[in-house]
Design a protein around this nucleic acid. Structure first.
Length: 266
DNA sequence: AATGGGACCTGCGCGC
DNA sequence: TGCGCGCAGGTCCCAT
């Protein structure tokens, strides 16, 4: 599932390969993924526009266009962007001025493509909390101290901290040795400082390895990301903890599968 | 107000 | 072998 490191990987690759190119044709093979505006308006607004800038906010990709509009893409869980693609088997294909296709795939059709006049006004983006890279240890501690919620669902709450999903929340909590079931306000200043540090480090390392290919995530080239082999707890239920050999436990927290070491994480 | 659960969706893995 | 069920999770929405 694409989280901040996966989307950052794709954004960096898009900058290298499609920045400055013009969209010459838009093929919408599966209309349901176009959430805004109508499919006709979407195609009309994109065709002929040049990709002027590419950025990422949390898990959202933003392609700013020469006509002042922006294409936003939220991959949700199974979305993929591939370049160069074949322009045929995708949900949506963008033919570019180099004659190649930027293909959008999405097995489960949860993803969200929009063409917006002002992406900053998109309610989801307006509601995003700061990314883990943008806060200080003092600030983070203050934020946690006001929250009774369990720490792991809170880390995944995009209005609280943005960019972290189920996988990296589990990894960061393991590295900080914090039980995912603890109330956020129960964390000491030292624990919260360590959690922020490990969250940042986990995300950075995942970016270096171009993301985690669980489910469908692939890089823009179609190759898998390389971070899965560094996962310490995620999807390792019953396997020995890498630190103490205790079997990794899986529980459901906030409706999501949560992996942790019951001995190391307190 | 904050939290929990279902809906959205499809493919895969499991058990019978 | 084949079928049906449960599960996977990002976000929205509604109920409590």
């Amino acid at each position: 599932m694409p989280e901040l490191p996966e989307v950052e990987t794709i954004a960096r690759e898009l900058k290298k390969s499609v920045l400055g190119k013009k969209i010459t044709e838009v093929c919408v093979h599966v209309p349901v993924v176009i959430r805004q505006p109508s499919v006709e308006q979407f195609k009309k607004g994109l065709t002929g526009a040049t990709i002027k800038n590419i950025l990422r906010k949390a898990k959202v990709l933003i392609l700013e266009l020469s006509n002042g509009k922006a294409l936003t893409i939220h991959l949700k869980m199974t979305g993929q962007l591939v370049y160069p693609g074949n322009g045929k088997t995708s949900r949506v294909s963008f033919r570019l001025s180099d004659g190649k296709y930027l293909d959008f795939f999405d097995q489960r059709l949860f993803a969200d493509l929009r063409l917006l006049d002002d992406w900053r006004q998109l309610p989801f983006i307006r509601g995003l909390g700061p990314e883990p890279f943008d806060i200080t240890t003092e600030w983070f501690f203050q934020m946690l101290s006001k929250k009774k919620a369990k720490i792991k669902p809170l880390l995944m709450d995009q209005t609280f901290i943005s960019g972290v999903g189920n996988l990296y929340a589990a990894e960061a909590l393991f590295r900080a040795k914090i039980d995912p079931q603890r109330s956020a306000s129960s964390l000491s200043d030292k624990e919260s400082a360590l959690l922020l540090k490990e969250t940042q480090a986990t995300l950075r390392e995942a970016i270096v390895h171009k993301g985690s290919s669980v489910d469908n995530y692939v890089q823009l080239t179609g190759l898998p990301g390389g971070y899965v082999k560094y996962h310490k707890v995620y999807d390792r239920e019953g396997k020995p903890c890498i630190m103490c050999k205790t079997p990794v436990k899986r529980i459901v927290l906030g409706g999501r599968g949560t992996y942790f070491c019951p001995k190391c994480q307190r």
